[in-house]
Amino acid sequence: MSNIFTSSIGKKLIMSISGCFLVLFLAFHMCMNLALVFSPEAYNAICEFLGANWYALVGTAILAAGVLVHFVYAFILTIQNRKARGNIRYAVTAKEEGVSWASKNMLVLGIIVILGLLVHLKDFWAQMQLVEILGHHTNSYGLTPTDGAGATLEVFGNPIYCVVYIVWLAALWFHLTHGVWSMLHTMGFNSKLWMKRVKCIANIVATLVVAGFMLVVVVCCLRANGIIG
């Protein structure tokens, strides 16, 4: 018989636990970023605290593992599910009532999220934690690797990067509107009452997380271009 790694329900649970972990990480990351809006010094203090210290490295490794699990299972699921649909597709399809667009495009949205993540890792992780790991003292922006505030000004000073980040975050928003709902549903919050609450909770969580990140992008862009102080 089957087990958690191979059964359909087991895979569902793996998606939801890994997704939940990623959402919690995002919420934490977003809160840290908000510090930057109020005080670049405070933000840099956080960057310094994390840096390439052992706890930050352990965190990064666990996070990478979480992304990997979610990513690998997303592909396994999607490939198996396409196979289960059979070789011949319907000639005519119609939208079922109450079925969200996001729920049917989770893999595509996830792929956009991963691509954005790669850009993001190149812009920040490779300029900060990686530089410290390698034992260098300045990054290619000419800044110390713990100067997160400086790095954001470098990146978001370029409006093209701001647009890329905003598209990335928009895809994340769609992914989370279905993802958080689905995750809670999978975990069992599915009584008559909770089904409605959970939809609302998912929209709130997705919006708060994405709006928090977007705010930072916009504020940095305006600051870097001297529009606000």
Partner: peptide, 13 residues
């Protein structure tokens, strides 16, 4: 050979 549920809700509709 049935697929894995991802809670789209199309079945219910």
């Amino acid at each position: 050979g049935f697929g894995n549920c991802t809670n789209t809700g199309a079945c219910e509709a």
